[in-house]
Amino acid sequence: MPAPQDGPLLDDAAGRLIRPYTVSNGRTRPTTVLDLLSLVMATGSDPQVHLGPEHTVALELCDGPTSVAEIAAHLRLPAVITKVLLSDLVDCGAVTAHAPAFHDMPTDRSLLEAVLDGLRRQL
């Protein structure tokens, strides 16, 4: 039997082979305040601590400013688990995180309509 890091994280037929909370060692609270719209970006420094494969994939997704929601979708993990992984990366200096800048109100009708339009085009 291969070591866990050698095997696939996802299996097309069976789905996720590792329980999401196993990825975060059962932690459900990130040490960094993040919301779904928080933008994270790699700093370019290598983490000095051992990280799991999900941490590595998340770090690779942070080449440019990327939202927590996008990373969670790519990892196929719940948002709370993704926040824990990203806060680990923030804590070790591998990524930075900040709230997105809204030029208008974040609930501006035109912004919400643009998001809805984009979602409809994806479906």
Rank of each mutant, 00 (worst) to 15 (best):
V33R: 13
T22V: 13
G64L: 12
D6N: 10
S110W: 09
P106C: 03
V84L: 00
C92H: 02
L36M: 08
R109M: 07
A79W: 00
C92A: 08
D104H: 11
C92K: 00
V95W: 12
A14Y: 13
L39G: 02
P106I: 03
S24T: 15
D88Y: 03
V80F: 03
T82W: 01
A72C: 00
G93T: 12
A99W: 14
D108Y: 06
L36F: 05
H103P: 05
L36Q: 09
A94N: 07
G44V: 07
P65V: 14
V84Y: 02
V95S: 12
G52D: 08
T43S: 10
A42P: 08
R109C: 07
P53D: 14
A13M: 14
L39P: 03
L85P: 03
V90W: 10
P106R: 01
D108N: 14
V40R: 04
C92S: 04
L9Q: 07
G26P: 02
A13E: 15
R109L: 09
T82H: 01
D46E: 13
T31R: 08
I18G: 02
L37V: 05
P30G: 15
D11E: 12
A69T: 00
H74C: 05
G7C: 10
I81M: 01
A73K: 06
A14K: 15
L61E: 10
L111R: 14
K83F: 01
L86Y: 01
D63Q: 14
S24I: 12
H55M: 06
L10S: 08
L59H: 08
R27F: 04
D35W: 05
T22F: 02
T31W: 02
A14Q: 15
T22H: 07
M105C: 09
M105F: 05
V84D: 00
T28G: 06
P78M: 02
M105N: 11
P20K: 01
L89M: 06
S45L: 12
Y21I: 15
G26V: 02
E70T: 06
T66K: 12
A42Q: 10
A13D: 13
L111N: 11
I71N: 03
G15H: 09
A72I: 00
N25W: 05
C92G: 05
A101M: 14
V84Q: 01
I81Y: 01
T96P: 08
A3D: 11
I18M: 03
L39A: 03
A73V: 03
A13W: 15
P53H: 13
H103L: 14
P4D: 07
I18P: 05
D35F: 00
S110V: 11
V57P: 00
G44I: 09
V68E: 04
Q48R: 05
I81E: 00
R27Y: 00
A94F: 03
L51S: 04
